[in-house]
């Protein structure tokens, strides 16, 4: 069975050949099989959104090829667009002055949904997304979560076999974020059999949803496998996590023996130092020597690596880097 998405040696640069050149996608190749839920993980600026835009025909790559459902994105962009639904995070992909029904009717016409099927399709989607009672309410009056549900309905209006889902839970409260995750996994992927390319920088989301994940960093794919195998790849490593109060930068950290990877994040006023190591006891004493006059240590624990630790270990980058995604 041919793959649904085939990306081969893809390059996309911005400001090519000029000062400040950005290598947004730098020689990326991968395939997504029919019915697969594939995750593309990386920090902001890794090139995930650029890649999605190339696949969805919004950008023309500089080199390489992309085939979607057997169609080349450069030669048959309209056929590619008929096969895909593109869902982005945020709320502004709908007409806020129109109602959900008016929005869906408009997109049904753009996608050429047969006229005699439009009503039935819209009824089905509004029921599926639990928006029936909001069908005639202006979008601007819906909550963020409802808008995202309606965006999902919009993407499904022509029943595409392939979905490109870019940061779907960004800005959603935990309840709706969980709804969206469950819907993607259980309804779209498992029940309806959609092939899904999901980009996210939430590791837990990727870990819970994806059949395979690719780590993307600085325009390149550094690793690609199932979440389980990726975690197993550093099975002999453990994670030493120190929770402390005070500021600490990654750049200040010295190169210590037994320190294999380092990730520093801030959450709720605390600084979390997560270190990959093959010997947590030995590393701990050295780290304490270094940090004791800089921060106040709150707690120390040794854990198994998460997918995020694998990412940090394999790419040397943190998922919580600042800046906009390229």
């Amino acid at each position: 069975m041919p793959a649904d998405i085939v990306v081969d040696a893809l390059y996309k640069f911005f400001k090519k050949g000029r000062p400040g050149e950005v290598r947004a996608v730098d020689g990326v190749s991968f395939q997504i099989e029919k019915g697969e839920l594939f995750g593309l993980l990386g920090p902001n600026g890794a090139g995930k959104t650029t890649l999605i835009k190339c696949i969805s025909t919004l950008l023309i790559p500089d080199a390489g090829s992309i085939r979607v459902a057997g169609f080349d994105v450069n030669k048959d962009p309209l056929k590619v667009r008929q096969q895909i639904g593109v869902l982005t995070g945020g709320e502004r992909s709908l007409y806020w002055k129109l109602t959900p029904i008016e929005n869906l009717r408009y997109f049904a016409a753009l996608y050429g949904v047969p006229r005699n099927q439009v009503k039935e399709r819209i009824d089905y989607l509004l029921s599926l997304m639990e928006l029936k009672d909001k069908a005639h309410t202006r979008v601007e009056k819906l909550s963020s979560g409802m808008k995202q549900k309606l965006s999902i309905a919009r993407v499904l209006v022509h029943n595409p076999p392939i979905l490109l889902v870019d940061e779907p839970t960004i800005g959603l409260d935990p309840y709706f974020a969980q709804f969206v995750r469950n819907f993607i996994k259980h309804e779209l992927n498992q029940r309806l059999g959609k092939t899904i390319l999901l980009t996210t920088h939430y590791m837990d989301e990727a870990d819970a949803l994806c059949d395979r994940v690719a780590f993307m960093n600085q325009g390149r794919i550094d690793a690609l496998d199932t979440p389980t195998r990726l975690k197993r790849s550093i099975i002999k490593k453990e994670i030493l996590e120190i929770k402390c109060l005070g500021e600490l930068q990654k750049e200040e950290f010295p190169a210590l023996e037994n320190l294999l990877s380092l990730n520093i994040t801030r959450l709720d006023g605390f600084t979390y130092i997560r270190m990959g190591t093959d010997n947590p006891e030995r590393l701990l004493s050295r780290v304490i020597d270094f940090i004791q006059h800089r921060v106040k240590v709150y707690s120390v624990q040794v854990t198994s690596p998460s997918l995020e630790d694998v990412f940090v270990y394999l790419t040397g980058a943190s998922l919580r880097q600042g800046g906009d995604d390229a």
Partner: peptide, 14 residues
């Protein structure tokens, strides 16, 4: 300005 340009640009019409 509406924020819908990319949403309509991925529809299968020129």
């Amino acid at each position: 300005w509406y924020g819908t340009l990319e949403a309509i640009f991925v529809a299968p019409v020129p």
